[in-house]
Computed example of a mutant assay.
Amino acid sequence: MSRVLVTGADLAPQAVELLAGHELVFAGKAPTEEDLVALCRAHDPVAIIVRYGKVGAAVMDAAPSLKVISKHGSGTDTIDKAAARARGIEVVAAVGANAAAVSEQALALLLACAKSVVALDARMHAGHWDKATHKSLELGGRTVGVVGLGAIGLRFARMADALGMRVLGFDPFANQLPAYVQRVELDAIWRESDAISLHCPLTEDNRGLVNAETLARCKRGLILVNTARGGLIDEAALLAALRSGQVAMAGLDSFAAEPMAPGHPFQGEPKLVLSPHIGGVTSDAYVNMGVAAARNLLDVLARQPAAA
């Protein structure tokens, strides 16, 4: 029986059922590259489902029978796609499987920032009543810039439109946008947005997309939301912009290094609302991503000749 390596400790039962013809090998909650190399050498999987950790050339070379790497989610930046291409290994992703979950998290972070939800909650629990002194931001009528118009970005844009926001969108690869998204270039996103939400994949071309220079071009008092990849943001530049007031608030669900290390400069910063990269972690998305990852790898294996 051929084996499938899962770089995590579990998989939705519905996905396990789909993969009943294969033996599943689980790598645990936080597998290192060394762990994955050792498991590949021991089990020689025909497929890898990527939940946690990175899959690079060393992992691929340790699995001579490997034919497909299937992402349990939509972002494939943790997979060395060039190395996979060079070895004839297909890389597939569960695009859209977590769109509802992540877009809702982005909206939650935007609202938390605009309405001071976290700060007011802390004040209330401490016995304060700030009605006479606090003013929140009204989002209706303001402009939100959406960077990345895939399944997640478009779903977020639809919710922002429902709030009465003007939606600007940038994505060089998106076609046939809905009427409520105004297609613009990045310069207009920086210049015109009251809030910006990031929904694009991380590539070497857009790493550090949000940096000191681009933040300086934004309106003062910007709200920034990131539920995509932490590498899109120069974290030191964002921190400086928060402390200067150029950025009023930021809601972040992903970070340059994960998990966040103790003592990270973001910890304790009052203008940040943070969540531990759980935008796509709901009971529904867990099933949707697992099933999509399983189906994607089975589709690839069905198209390829069996191992000798």
Rank of each mutant, 00 (worst) to 15 (best):
V46M: 09
D171G: 01
N296P: 04
E258L: 08
F255R: 00
A94T: 12
V184I: 07
I89G: 02
R123E: 14
G75K: 02
V50K: 05
V95A: 13
I189F: 10
A195Q: 07
T7P: 11
G88Q: 10
K131F: 00
A112K: 07
I223T: 04
Y52D: 13
E23Q: 09
G164M: 15
L252C: 06
T143H: 08
P270N: 05
L149D: 04
Q182P: 00
L202M: 01
V95I: 15
A119F: 06
R87S: 05
N206K: 10
R41W: 04
R295N: 13
A308P: 13
G8A: 15
L198P: 01
H72I: 15
A47H: 07
T76S: 13
N98K: 07
F156W: 08
F26P: 02
S283G: 14
G164D: 12
G8P: 08
H125G: 08
D61S: 12
L107Q: 07
A216G: 11
E213Y: 10
V68N: 01
H22W: 06
E235F: 09
Q105F: 09
S70P: 06
E192Y: 03
H43G: 11
L139M: 14
A15M: 11
D234Q: 06
H43W: 09
C40N: 04
Q14A: 15
A195E: 08
V167W: 00
E185G: 15
V117W: 00
L18I: 12
G56P: 04
S283C: 14
L120Q: 03
I223R: 01
R85H: 12
D121Y: 07
G263F: 02
G141P: 08
R3T: 14
E185L: 02
L209I: 04
N288R: 14
F255K: 02
L215P: 01
A212C: 09
Q105W: 06
P262V: 14
L215H: 05
V102S: 09
A101W: 00
D77L: 01
S193W: 03
I223E: 03
L120H: 00
L298E: 08
L66N: 03
D80N: 15
K67N: 04
S103V: 07
A293H: 06
E33I: 10
V167T: 00
E204R: 13
A97N: 12
S136G: 12
G221E: 11
G28L: 04
A250P: 09
V118P: 06
S275P: 01
K115M: 02
L224I: 10
N175K: 15
G148H: 04
V68W: 00
E185Y: 10
H72K: 11
A195F: 07
A261T: 03
E138H: 11
L298G: 01
L202E: 05
L177S: 04
R243Y: 09
G279W: 00
P270T: 04
I189T: 04
A93R: 05
R158P: 01
N98L: 12
M289I: 11
G290C: 11
D10P: 05
G75E: 05
R191A: 15
